[in-house]
């Protein structure tokens, strides 16, 4: 097996400024980034959600390990991220029933990963009897631009307090939320107790319309 001499890429360390997460809201300019992505709808932790998380990770690892095997540039698999939104813009997490929540699961991926690698990975995973959802995983580039960002420590269902702080902060700056709510999961909810879960909350903002 060949091994590359080049340092392994850690995208989070490389783009540290994009993942700053103080415990009070802050403005961050988020540059374009590439992701493996899969969308769905319904309760987080529900059947569809779990299957798609599995499909996304399976794809991410298959692509990475295939590249590693052939001696190409190695990189670490980034932590899971997710965008959340509602069909009706007036709704939010507290008012919309969970079955109406839209989400897009994301894993940040180096920009040298190509579509054909994705297709190959899906083929191999299907052959091995993994989730058929692997066929829905795509490569996506997101440019979020100016965002309010903040660290939320605690259970996911208490994010509203943190989000209110972010909204208030945006308003002070003459800004308002636009686009999709975005979360970066720093902790593993399987074992970390809810009160210690760390999540970066991010929301794109624009100049407030008068």
């Amino acid at each position: 097996m060949h091994k590359t001499k080049a340092e392994k890429i850690d995208l989070y360390k490389l783009h540290k400024d994009q993942y700053v997460a103080p415990k009070r809201p802050q403005l961050v300019d988020i540059e374009t980034a590439e992701y493996l992505a899969i969308s769905g709808r319904g309760e987080p932790g529900g059947e569809e959600f779990v299957a798609k998380v599995g499909a996304l990770y399976g794809t991410a690892y298959t692509i990475k390990m295939t590249r590693k095997f052939t001696g190409e540039q190695d990189y670490g698999i980034c932590k899971l991220q997710c965008q959340w939104w509602f069909d009706d813009e007036r709704q939010d997490f507290s008012s919309a029933p969970k079955e109406h929540w839209n989400w897009k699961l994301l894993i940040r991926t180096p920009d040298f990963v190509r579509d054909n690698e994705l297709a190959e990975a899906a083929k191999k995973l299907l052959e091995k009897g993994k989730e058929p959802e692997v066929q829905q995983v795509g490569l996506e580039s997101l440019t979020e631009g100016l965002c309010v960002q903040m660290l939320h420590v605690g259970p996911y269902d208490q994010e509203h307090e943190t989000i209110s702080k972010m909204v208030a902060f945006a308003e002070q700056q003459g800004l308002e939320f636009c686009e999709r709510h975005h979360e970066i999961y720093l902790s593993d909810p399987r074992r970390v107790p809810p009160e210690r879960l760390k999540t970066i909350l991010r929301h794109p903002v624009r100049k407030k319309s008068r």
Partner: peptide, 16 residues
């Protein structure tokens, strides 16, 4: 490294 690379390229690494 050896185990993950081999299993990964074969599509044997999944959520389970």
């Amino acid at each position: 490294d050896r185990l993950c690379t081999h299993l990964g390229k074969e599509g044997c690494l999944g959520s389970g």
